[in-house]
């Protein structure tokens, strides 16, 4: 029985198929585990390892390099407040401090109800609306303490569900072509070009 549920097994197999080498699917598959489990679970890493043809340790070793892959559970909403230079100048540290008070947790911690995990992030590339805040990697553009608190209570009440899915769901658009354009044709073209190059030299 496959690890992935709700059609995710087919998406996992598609990810393996669209890369020339299966290990390239490792990080996208980790995102897929996070979509299913909310974080990168131990069992999920084993499943990714099997699909990619590597050991679970290699999956963990790779995943722990990256900020977005969480090997411990996080809240339903991962709230990231940027304090890098453009946001610092706009009061990012102060907004982060406010967020700590408002959510009642320190940076890195999760609220007791499991709803929110607070993070201090590096630049999120939205510096014209600073300080920048993302929830589950969606820009929410709450630059003031009041806007931040309003968003938090909206999320507590189950609002904005269509805009901000639970933590882990990254790309909701499905790739609707399965495999490489035409592997046979691509191979033929490559062979023809190789022959042409050899003919020149």
């Amino acid at each position: 029985m496959s690890y992935f549920t709700d059609g995710r097994q087919a998406r996992a197999e598609q990810l393996i198929a669209i890369y020339p080498e299966q290990r390239s699917a490792l990080i996208p598959l980790c995102h897929l585990v996070q979509e299913q489990d909310g974080y990168l679970s131990e069992e999920g890493m084993v499943a990714v390892a099997e699909l990619c043809g590597v050991t679970p340790a290699e999956v963990r070793g790779t995943a722990t390099f990256y900020d977005m892959l969480h090997t411990e559970p996080v809240g339903k909403y991962l709230v990231g407040v940027c304090t890098n230079i453009a946001c610092l100048l706009a009061g990012g540290l102060e907004l982060l401090e406010h967020a700590e008070g408002s959510l009642g947790v320190r940076v890195g911690a999760t609220t007791e109800d499991g709803l929110f995990t607070l993070e201090e992030t590096e630049c999120l590339a939205d510096c014209n609306i600073a300080p920048c805040v993302q929830v589950n990697h969606r820009y929410v553009r709450t630059t003031t303490p009041e806007q931040f608190d309003a968003l938090v209570s909206e999320l507590r009440d189950g609002g904005r569900a269509s805009e901000i899915p639970s933590h882990g769901t990254l790309i909701r658009t499905r790739r609707d072509v399965d495999l490489a354009a035409d592997p046979g044709l691509v191979a033929q073209e490559r062979a023809a070009r190789r022959a042409a190059v050899e003919g020149q030299s």
């Binding site: 996208p28 995102h31 390099f65 990256y66 900020d67 977005m68 490489a180």
Partner: peptide, 14 residues
């Protein structure tokens, strides 16, 4: 001419 494009998500690392 044939081409396949794959969009690949990073995972947070400058």
């Amino acid at each position: 001419f044939s081409l396949d494009i794959v969009v690949h998500p990073g995972a947070g690392a400058y």
